[in-house]
Design a protein around this nucleic acid. Structure first.
Length: 677
DNA sequence: CTTCCTGCCGTTTTT
DNA sequence: CGGCAGGAAG
């Protein structure tokens, strides 16, 4: 016991201030911690978990902690384990709403008509399914696009509403409302037939189960008596109801968030959830954390001006004791290449010291076209020599498309970099093909996967044959199926191959199975067609083995199930490797919760940040401002603000206007970087 | 059914 | 500029 106390005291002494300590030790009941950027809110939440276990002697398995990403959950798990020491036994449940939703669904699947080994459909699967439904219902997909229905379905599930109230599209008319309902219904039916769920279902279905089965809700209320939620400002309505139901019995709900950092409105996040916390829980304790431990005061001064563009939400003013610090730098680039060039030059200067090699000799003529053309002569970049410590540097942008120019220059100047997101590993064709084979293996109802792989390698199955096959399978008509097999013997052997793989003894590992699939289906030889590209695609699959290997201790069927689940719920940010010495390139959304010594915030232009699509509604612009605020507050020591006077998009060059966000920052808060290039 | 080519359309942000 | 859907030819 003595040791326990000492450990917690040590925890307390590692720099928690009185306000943070108040949060960690808040009495049981509803608690809202309103915490500014860089105030250590996630840390408070983590330490509170340890406090509950150590000081209050709460059993770890009675604690549920919800994080925003799997990566955050992983970090929290590591930290909690470390703080708890070598204690054996159970751990608190930590994960995202989605990963927790899956766990509940696995337990309660029969209540919503799912059977074991159901699969999770991602956006692409969703789109394929919707396309089929639209053609079946004779809806013109050029007029009412599958993407529109995806939005409707998402919104309905996020808000736990009927799918009818979408009005943000010029296609809207009276008939459309009925169509939306019809498509939604058919879509849900089809999902069930495929033994599949989508992302929205992972939250919505557990909520429905809780609502329809009080005894089940009660079971989970008893299981998790202590609930903690991080990034509460980004919860949507379904997640809010999910939390509220679970917490309604014991009301030991501890939520942490910052309304100034709410950036997921487009995904259904409802800022009102955090603003109304006091209304929902009248006895709630509100704790404010306003001291910032991350950034220096010149950076915070900029952040403050940015967020002041928005009307006041919760009153909060950040402050820091880090008075010293470099003043942020503003750079006006001619175009996106010059912007990237500036980033690279700053990194090289920082790592290797300022270099004269870099001097650019300007032309005499100063007209805009000549300046625009200059980047063609900027390619004289030295190579980076000192590659240590690059993981402290991040380049943040609004859209993935902006990464291209940056990437080019990074390669040219030998700056190691990692791009988070964009073309995801798991979105590559060959990877998705292999995953589809695996999905089919554990869930023969997954016709979307069947469609994907039945003709890989070509087995003479086109759309027509596939329709016949699908009908035969759906209606379970042996005779029809026999006919199809008769016409296309290759289909029969395809199923025979899958069958024989499916009958491999239980002790086989997931790796054996993947190898068998690659070999016996002929996919491997199909992929390795002798071209260099084929070989590199095959290498990607090799990489998949590394991930799958961590499931090789399980019986293969279970291993594949877990593997597929992990892959489906994996996010870009989970792939981020902080220990590799590389500059990180990512979107502002992905940067949430992270921090870097040096941050470049690029593309500060009207139309990009705030994004043109956001300017239709004032509310959406407010979210863009918060996004900029998130970006600025990622910087610990040095902040660069960059914009380009012209930018190429869709192959044509456009002149751009500096962002209103820049205009909101008084000139004395930054220094302008002057250069001839 | 497969392959190859043309032309069109598009880019917010993601669990 | 680039990805991909859809059409024509083999």
């Amino acid at each position: 016991m003595r040791k326990t106390t000492t450990q917690l005291d040590q925890t307390d002494q590692t720099g928690l201030n009185p306000a943070q300590l108040e949060a960690v030790k808040a009495p049981m009941g509803p608690v809202l911690v309103l915490a500014g950027a860089g105030s250590g809110k996630t840390r408070c939440l983590t330490i509170r978990i340890v406090y509950l276990i150590h000081k209050l002697k709460i059993r770890p398995e009675e604690i549920l902690a919800v994080t925003f990403t799997n990566k955050a959950a992983g970090e929290m798990k590591t930290r909690v384990a470390k703080l708890l020491g070598q204690r054996s036994g159970l751990r608190p449940m930590m994960g995202t709403f989605h990963s927790i939703g899956v766990k509940i669904l696995r337990q309660e699947r029969e209540k919503v008509g799912l059977t074991s080994n159901f699969v999770i459909f991602d956006d692409n699967d969703q789109e394929s399914l919707l396309k089929e439904i639209l053609s079946k219902l004779k809806i013109d997909p050029t007029k009412l696009k599958p993407a529109l229905f995806q939005r409707i379905i998402d919104r309905a599930k996020n808000n736990l509403e009927e799918p009818e109230d979408i009005d943000d599209n010029d296609n809207y008319d009276r008939k459309f409302k009925d169509t939306a309902r019809l498509v939604y219904q058919e879509y849900q039916d089809q999902l069930l037939k495929h033994n599949a769920v989508d992302f929205g279902d992972l939250i919505m279905m557990p909520v429905k189960i809780f609502q329809n089965h009080p005894e089940t809700l009660s079971k989970y209320q008893e299981q998790w008596k202590y609930i903690l939620v991080d990034e509460y400002q980004d919860t949507n309505h379904a997640q809010y109801v999910f939390t509220k139901l679970l917490a309604s019995k014991y009301k030991n709900l501890f939520v942490v968030g910052d309304d100034a950092q709410a950036i997921y409105g487009f995904r259904g996040a409802n800022l009102q959830n955090i603003l109304d916390f006091e209304k929902d829980y009248p006895k709630a304790q509100i704790i404010r954390l306003e001291q910032n431990y991350r950034s220096t005061s010149p950076i915070l001064a900029v952040a403050q001006k940015v967020i002041e563009l928005n009307p006041r939400q919760h009153q909060k003013k950040l402050w820091t004791e880090n008075r010293e610090g470099n003043i942020p730098t503003l750079f006006r680039a001619d175009d996106e290449m010059a912007e990237a060039w500036f980033v690279a030059k700053q990194i090289i200067d920082h790592q290797d010291g300022p270099s004269n090699e870099l001097q650019y000799v300007p032309d005499e003529d100063t007209d805009i076209l000549s300046r625009i053309m200059r980047h063609s002569r900027m390619k004289i970049l030295p190579k980076l020599r000192n590659r240590k410590g690059l993981n402290n540097v991040a380049v943040l942008y609004r859209t993935h498309a902006q990464s291209r120019a940056l990437e080019e220059i990074m390669i040219e100047s030998s700056i190691p970099y990692q791009i988070v997101g964009g073309l995801k590993f798991y979105e590559r064709k060959e990877i998705k093909d292999v995953l589809a084979y695996l999905r089919l293996l554990v869930n023969t109802n997954d016709l979307i996967s069947l469609k994907r792989v039945i003709n890989l390698p070509p087995r003479g199955v086109g759309p027509k044959t596939f329709e016949l096959l699908k009908d035969a399978l759906l209606e379970k008509k042996e005779k029809k199926l026999a006919e199809v097999f008769e016409a296309r013997p290759q289909i029969r052997s395809f199923f025979e191959i899958l069958d024989s793989i499916g009958n491999i003894e239980e002790e086989a590992t997931i790796l054996d199975i993947i190898k068998s699939v690659l070999k016996f289906t002929g996919y491997e030889s199909f992929l390795r067609d002798g071209t260099e590209e084929g070989e590199s695609r095959f290498e990607n699959i090799q990489e998949l083995f590394n991930v799958a290997a961590s499931f090789s201790k399980l019986p293969w069927k279970e291993g594949i199930g877990r593997f597929l689940e992990e892959v489906a719920l994996m996010t870009n940010i989970d792939e981020l490797d902080e220990n590799s010495d590389k500059v990180t390139l990512m979107t502002l959304h992905q940067a949430k919760g992270l921090e870097f010594d040096i941050v470049f915030l690029v593309g500060l232009e009207e139309g990009l940040l705030p994004h043109s699509r956001s300017m239709i509604e004032a509310n959406d612009v407010a979210e863009e401002i918060r996004l900029a605020y998130v970006g600025v507050t990622r910087a610990k020591k040095q902040l660069y603000l960059v914009y380009a006077m012209s930018r190429k998009q869709f192959g044509t060059r456009n002149l751009s206007v500096p962002s209103r966000i820049l205009k909101a920052i008084p000139e004395e808060l930054y220094e302008v970087y002057e250069s001839e290039f």
